[in-house]
């Protein structure tokens, strides 16, 4: 993927916002893709974690809004523990989720879950999913 850097594509405000939410400095990323290699969920993601980090470095929130990557992240921190630049990538993924969730939008709808699934799932699965995927 080629990214053209222009005043239209780059958003300093978005970069600052994501840094603030995550408490990380996304500019530290050197695009080595160790995160992608560590991630157990890449098969489900449309963009790899590395690609997401790349777009994040340009603050391209609109482009990231179309991606399912942060919603498929299981917050397992496999990327975080191996990042050679010390970025807590799980926190960046959370910042991307929160950017959406804080506008009162849900990614999954608790009321749409079938009763049999709810009855079968352990409570921690419901609590965790609602925390990560609902506003």
């Amino acid at each position: 993927m080629t990214l053209t850097i222009t005043a239209q594509t780059i958003s300093i405000t978005s970069i600052e916002q994501l840094n603030e939410l995550s408490g990380e400095n996304v500019k530290l990323c050197m695009q080595c893709a160790t995160c992608t290699g560590m991630c157990p969920m890449t098969a489900e993601m449309d963009l790899s974690p590395r690609t997401v980090m790349h777009l994040v470095q340009f603050g391209m929130l609109d482009r990231l809004g179309d991606s399912n990557t942060c919603w498929k992240c299981a917050s397992c921190h496999a990327c975080t523990v191996k990042c050679p630049r010390g970025i807590d990538i799980a926190k960046v993924m959370e910042a991307l989720r929160q950017h959406v969730l804080r506008t009162n939008r849900n990614y999954i709808e608790p009321s749409a879950l079938p009763a049999e699934r709810i009855a079968e799932l352990p409570q921690i699965a419901l609590v965790a999913a609602f925390r990560k995927l609902t506003s």
Partner: peptide
């Protein structure tokens, strides 16, 4: 589980 299914928002 019946209560959980009727009110899944409990887990929020």
């Amino acid at each position: 589980e019946a209560i959980h299914a009727l009110y899944p928002e409990l887990f929020r």
